[in-house]
Design a protein around this nucleic acid. Structure first.
Lengths: 204, 204, 204, 204
DNA sequence: GATGAATGAGCTTTCATTCAT
DNA sequence: TATGAATGAAAGCTCATTCAT
């Protein structure tokens, strides 16, 4: 039988939960708006104003959720990397042959960015321009851990499947190169698309 | 026997040549300064002011040579691509075995950017962010032609050496992927460096 | 014999007292935090956010106690002036010689601010910058009354001790001047400190 | 007989002079506007926008002349201190009696600020709030030198007139105290005005 | 009474570019 | 051509205050 205290704390918890949920929803709204603007305008091109406008709020309303533009950008990347992690994990788990798990992971990696060219561009800022932007060490570290996590996942499968570490490095590099070239139209001069070439490489 | 008219035109030509030379020198000064600033600060981070300061002139003095920041940026990239073209050509010509000319070209491509990590970053803006930057179609076209030129060079050798087009695509993609990963520290987790991995790939 | 009504009202009074006490405590907490922040950051430099953070509450929690930043600032000054009044009164009452009570009061005035350089700076905003701050006439009046109270106290002693009104004016001015100069390092060029100079002046 | 080179350099000099003059005039315009706004709104209250509006230009047009708000504020104070220096010097030179030169200087000091209550308020920011504002050490040093210059001037006369250093300290403190009290209405409770009280003090 | 997200205006400063000189 | 002041818009961010919860 619940006493007064329990009733009270239950009420508080419920209220807290609702508040947390609302906060999460608002946060999501902003992150989504930010992704749209960042992918359309780039990191420097995107302005807090336009992000706010897209999110349907004022600039000031962003700051309770993110301390600044950088952190917001970081959140966008993190979300994408989380999805990437999920996709790669799923692909690996779905693949029954231990020998082919690594390949499946690489293909999932490729598919993820191939289907989201904008996310690739977003990620390339990290790959090429981060230091210039001055993303603090802290945020940079967070992202690094996530990227490494995905790579480690694949490498683990490769090792289990009897592949050498350099195979993994080469496979991911190949994958990355095809993505970059595909994204920038350099592949259109040949007849085969990126995924076909990647499969050929992995069959080697 | 030179008549008066000829003498006159000779004098004019000489003056013109001197003027052209001066103009070229000034232009070069600005492009070099721009490269330094662009590589240090990134495309958006670089300001015309700082480029001018680095070049030892005032902001206004840049505009007679370049219509704006974009064109200046384009000139920097063009110069780099010209050098890349030269390096690849040299490597191909130096290589005596017809079968290995293509590989030599790819390695030269790799070496060029591996030794100039900043130029790679600069180029990646083109690869990933062009539209965002708002580089006009015209300037974009100019750069495309130059990039294609280098790729065609390698592909020609590959075909002559009995390689399939998809070999070329894969080789360049692999090269590009290794560069990107090397530049962003993703390769440091393995023991082998980018060039070694590329050589392994080409020996396949 | 207490009737029901009395019992009731007693209970209400007790509850009311407790509430009042709590309210006073909260208020004090905020004023103290405000003084710390105001003295450290200045009037404009201090933000309601940082005051709230220092007080251990949120911005909104300040407003039930103070209608705004100005009123909070005013409360800080008032508290300081109350302490000043107490110190001066004590000094006057402690001094046995009627002729020297005024001097004792002036010295207490000096000591108060000399030991609290930050409070002097705080007060100088009032002395010099009130209108700029936009402190309403009402708040300004409250502070004026308090400042005048202290001065009247001293002047009363001076008159009782046979001093002319202009003596009082001069003494307080001298005291004030020494404080300002001491606080801003102008006195450090001479060998004597502010208090010594004030004593010399009062011995005149 | 002037040769071509001389003619040329003369022309250049003339143009340069005109440009310098124009620059000085524009600068003056901005400083004057800044003084107006600073005295009316205070250091924090004044915005670059309002200063620019008062000066009849855009915000950006201020920055070629001053690197920021602080430097502009510093320029305003410097100008005032220069005028103060001139006034004090004149008063000292005009006074024929060596014994009374110091007093003349102090009176000139008083008159300067008594006639310009706003400049006093401006100066008091320096006296009380500078550190909070974060005026760099460099700018602070410049102002300090100028203030010290005026004080040294008076002290030199005092010594020449047989006054002790502590006399100078006391005189300036008295002067300062009367100014502050007069400016804030504390003197209006007595019948005598600040200058009269200062004269009384100096006759002592 | 307390919370903290939201507002909307405000801030200083920087920018690419233009143009009179 | 070169200068560098001027423009006008825009940037990221902070502010005191309000108000639904």
């Amino acid at each position: 039988m619940p006493d007064l205290h329990d009733q009270e704390s239950t009420k508080v918890d419920a209220r807290q939960m609702r508040a947390d949920h609302l906060r999460g929803a608002r946060r999501s709204l902003i992150v989504n708006a930010a992704r749209d603007v960042f992918t359309k305008e780039g990191l420097d091109g995107a302005s807090m104003r336009s992000i706010a406008r897209t999110a349907g709020c004022t600039t000031g309303a962003i700051y309770p959720y993110f301390h600044g533009k950088e952190e917001l950008y970081c959140a966008v990347l993190q979300e994408a990397l989380e999805q990437l992690h999920i996709n790669v994990t799923e692909a690996i788990e779905t693949c029954l042959s231990i020998e082919e798990k690594a390949q499946a992971g690489v293909l999932a990696f490729f598919d993820f960015y191939n289907e989201r060219p904008d996310e690739l561009a977003l990620g390339l800022y990290v790959f090429s321009g981060l230091k210039r932007v001055g993303l603090g060490r802290e945020l940079d570290g967070v992202l690094n851990v996530q990227v490494s996590g995905v790579i480690d996942l694949i490498e683990g499968c490769a090792r289990a499947g009897g592949r050498s570490p350099e195979w993994t490095a080469g496979a991911i590099a190949h994958c990355m190169g095809l993505l970059v070239m595909g994204h920038t139209g350099r592949l259109s001069h040949w007849d085969y698309d990126g995924r076909y070439l990647l499969e050929q490489f992995l069959l080697r």
